[in-house]
């Protein structure tokens, strides 16, 4: 974390050239060998696959060879010409932004709340229970969702009808798709996300609290003035990383929730890519869309990082 403080580094190191520095740091290089190797082998070596975004890729073909047909930016143009192009982007972004607005803070909120539970048994029970939904396969979550919100006798509609209302088609209504998606996302993910904040909170120096108590601060004050600011760097880091995947909403849950009539909000980039790329086998086109995705994510992260650096003086790099 870069925090702008003045450090007085011992001045011995002035005057070393590049190679001398390399030699001086040889131990650090050794330490970082394994992660470095990993990056090169498993992340950079396969990166050559990105080139199929610019080809008319056929299965089984080598990625670069005499037979490869280069089509330049044709796939990108095709994507931008698609009448639904903006729809996919907008749907993806809205799900993402909504989840940052609602699900992201939920994790922090839960961590703070659970931290204030004074009865140890309840606290550990609560934290354990809250992470359970994370383990349930998304298929079952959507099935349960459908069961509860079914227009054909689901629990919620039973209550509505018994109170004299008319059954609502939650799963088939466009206006309910996002709330259901985000709501179930909060249910499944808040507890799990809270783990990292709980750890951050637990790492706060207790003497700060002691001092505050002596000054007469109540727990509310302590929460606002100590706990929150101390975990702010953690929050900022997690937020920036989260923004870096803003355009990458996974297809599985959305695909399971789609009912056709909700497609104007429920058809996102990844479900489209799944249909085109995996089901229909058009890997170049899908890869091009994926590349576009990545570029947008990169721009978003760099922007988020700059903003964070200005506002909170802490940034990712």
């Amino acid at each position: 974390m870069k925090t702008k403080t003045k450090t007085n580094e011992p001045q011995v190191k002035i005057g070393l050239n590049f190679w001398q520095k390399m030699a001086r740091d040889w131990q650090l290089w050794v330490l970082s060998l394994i992660p470095l190797l990993y990056l090169i082998l498993f992340r950079y070596l396969p990166m050559f696959g990105v080139v199929i975004s610019f080809q008319d890729y056929k299965m089984g073909a080598p990625f670069i060879g005499p037979k490869t047909e280069w089509v330049g930016f044709d796939h990108f143009i095709r994507f931008f010409k698609n009448p639904y192009c903006w729809r996919y982007i907008r749907n993806t972004l809205s799900l993402s932004v909504l989840s940052v607005i609602f699900i992201f803070p939920a994790g922090i909120f839960l961590a703070l709340v659970f931290n204030e539970i004074r009865i140890k048994k309840i606290q550990s029970a609560a934290t354990t229970i809250s992470i359970l939904p994370h383990f349930i396969s998304v298929v079952v979550i959507v099935a349960m969702l459908r069961n509860i919100f079914s227009v054909d006798g689901g629990l919620v509609n039973k209550v509505i009808v018994s109170m004299g209302g008319e059954a609502i088609d939650f799963m088939g209504a466009s206006e309910w798709f996002r709330p259901l998606y985000i709501g179930s996302g909060m249910w499944a993910g808040a507890g799990y996300a809270a783990i990292v904040y709980t750890a951050a909170i637990a790492g706060i120096d207790p003497s700060l609290y002691e001092a505050a108590k002596i000054d007469g601060a109540n727990r509310w004050r302590q929460l606002l003035n100590i706990t929150l600011p101390c975990i702010l760097p953690t929050i900022a880091t997690m937020l920036i990383l989260r923004i870096g995947s803003l355009m990458s909403v996974g297809y599985e849950k959305v695909l399971l929730m789609q009912t056709g009539s909700t497609n104007d909000v429920a058809d996102i980039l990844s479900t489209y890519t799944y249909r085109i790329g995996i089901l229909d086998g058009q890997s170049s086109y899908a890869s091009a869309i994926g590349l576009f995705n990545s570029v947008v994510n990169l721009i978003l992260v760099i922007s988020a990082n700059k903003v964070s650096a200005k506002l909170t003086e802490s940034s990712l790099w």
Binding site: M47, G49, L291, S294
Partner: peptide
Amino acid sequence: VQMFFGGGMIPT
């Protein structure tokens, strides 16, 4: 860089 760009399933 690698956080955003990857080759995908086939090259991996």
